[in-house]
Simulated assay, not measured.
Amino acid sequence: MRKLFLAIAAYAVLSAPAFAEPVTLRAISAFPSNLEFTKQFQTFIERVNKAGEGVVRVQFVGGPEVIPPQQQDTALRNGVFDMQMGPASYYNGIVPEADALFGATAGPVQARENGATKMLNDIWRKKLNAQFIGWQSGGIPFYVYLVDKPKMTSEGVLDLTGLQMRSTPAYKEWFEKLGGNNVMLQTAEMFTALERGVVRGLGWPAISYTDIGVHKFLKYQVAPPVWQLDLVIMMNGKKWDALPEQARQIIEQAAVEHERATQSDFGAIREREDKILREAGVQTVEVGNPALHRKIAHDLVWDRLASRDPSNVEALKAKLYQE
């Protein structure tokens, strides 16, 4: 009898299904780890890992030191990495609709509620073979920061004529429109460029300038702010489709929570950094015609999108932009 019991027990052990290992996803950021953008992304990763214990796990592998930001979308498409966070404007040559995020006045929570996020995901899947996971904006806008006292045109908008401005594809046309000269530099090069006088200003969101230390050289913040952070968390489409349904639900729920959380998190960071900016002696200068200043910046973004691919402009604009 004892032998029979042992035999049955052994059979039960051998025939029992093995516990599946959690799916591990490799994630990368377009920004260095010390920037708040990446810190917030890591908070999202922690949220996924906590809720997905035993099901799905995200491993953060690094930032620009691993692969340059402008090459990360290609690496994601090719499956080198599974998940990426960074500015959608870095790959708006492939996905022109990235400009819709940049030019938006609606935030991530509203975009998810009114169906804009689903539209964006359909576009990301078609053009980038990527799943649009979430929009890490927090409602943070962009300012122009200058070393020298800003000049205004007769129309009451910023005049950058002759100024060397640290730039990226996101700012290039706007700075040109305002008369500035674009000096295309990576984030890591900004400090040295300002220190050496290579540039006299830059465009940057209302947070994370203190992480880089550039506030030490800046003297003026030009208001009002424009645009909105276009930080997108996305995944390789094939990898997303291969995930168990439970893993997809965990990531989607984490994205919903993350989009809401960044509103308060980024807001607190903005208040903290604004205080540092004032203590460093940076003054805010309001342009003479704030409405025109904002209109020029936003119209440029939406017009650029319309010229590159008009097929989704009106639908996205209706959901994301209000003058």
Results as ranks from 00 to 15, higher is better:
Leu231Val: 15
His215Cys: 02
Glu252Ile: 04
Val256Tyr: 09
Tyr209Glu: 09
Trp227Met: 10
Ile276Gly: 06
Pro224Ser: 06
Ser208Ile: 14
Trp227Glu: 09
Asp265Gln: 13
Thr210Leu: 05
Gln246Ser: 12
Trp227Gly: 08
Glu259Pro: 15
Leu231His: 14
Ala223Trp: 11
Glu259His: 10
Ile233Lys: 05
Ile212Lys: 00
Pro205Arg: 09
Asn236Ala: 05
Phe217Gln: 00
Asp265Cys: 01
Val222Leu: 06
Lys219Ile: 01
Ile233Ser: 13
Gly213Arg: 01
Arg272Tyr: 13
Ile269Pro: 07
Thr262Arg: 03
Ala254Leu: 07
Thr210Val: 08
His258Pro: 11
Lys216Ala: 00
Ile251Asn: 05
Leu202Ser: 02
Val282Tyr: 07
Asp265Leu: 13
Asp274Gly: 14
Glu273Asn: 12
Pro290Ser: 05
Arg200Thr: 00
Thr210Pro: 08
Glu286Lys: 15
Pro205Tyr: 01
Arg260Leu: 00
Glu257Tyr: 10
Val285Glu: 03
Val198Ala: 00
Asp241Ala: 15
Ala255Asn: 06
Leu229Gly: 15
Ala206Arg: 12
Asp274Thr: 14
Arg270His: 09
Met235Asn: 11
Trp240Ser: 07
Val287Thr: 06
Ala223Lys: 13
Ser264Lys: 15
Gln221Val: 12
Pro244Lys: 01
Gln283Cys: 01
His258Arg: 07
Leu231Ala: 15
Asp241Arg: 13
Leu202His: 02
Ile251Tyr: 03
Leu231Arg: 14
Met235Cys: 03
Asn289Gly: 09
Leu243Asn: 08
Ile276Phe: 15
His258Leu: 04
Trp227Asp: 11
Gln246Gly: 10
Ile251Glu: 07
Arg248Tyr: 02
Ile251Thr: 09
Glu252Tyr: 05
Asn236Val: 03
Ile207Asn: 08
His215Thr: 14
Thr262Trp: 08
Ala280Lys: 12
Ala223Asp: 06
Lys216Phe: 06
Gln246Tyr: 04
Arg270Cys: 01
Arg278Gln: 07
Glu273Thr: 13
Gln263Lys: 13
Pro224Glu: 01
Trp240Val: 13
His215Asn: 11
Arg270Asp: 13
Gly267Tyr: 14
Lys238Ala: 10
Trp240Ile: 10
Phe217His: 00
Arg248Ile: 11
Ile251Val: 15
Ile269Asp: 04
Gln263Ser: 13
Ser264Glu: 14
Lys216Gly: 04
Trp240Arg: 08
Val222Asp: 02
Arg260Met: 01
Glu271Asn: 10
Phe217Trp: 03
Gln246His: 12
Leu202Arg: 07
Asp241Met: 10
Asn289Leu: 11
Pro225Ile: 06
Ile207Tyr: 10
Trp227His: 12
Ile276Pro: 10
Tyr220Ala: 02
Glu257Ser: 07
Asp230Arg: 03
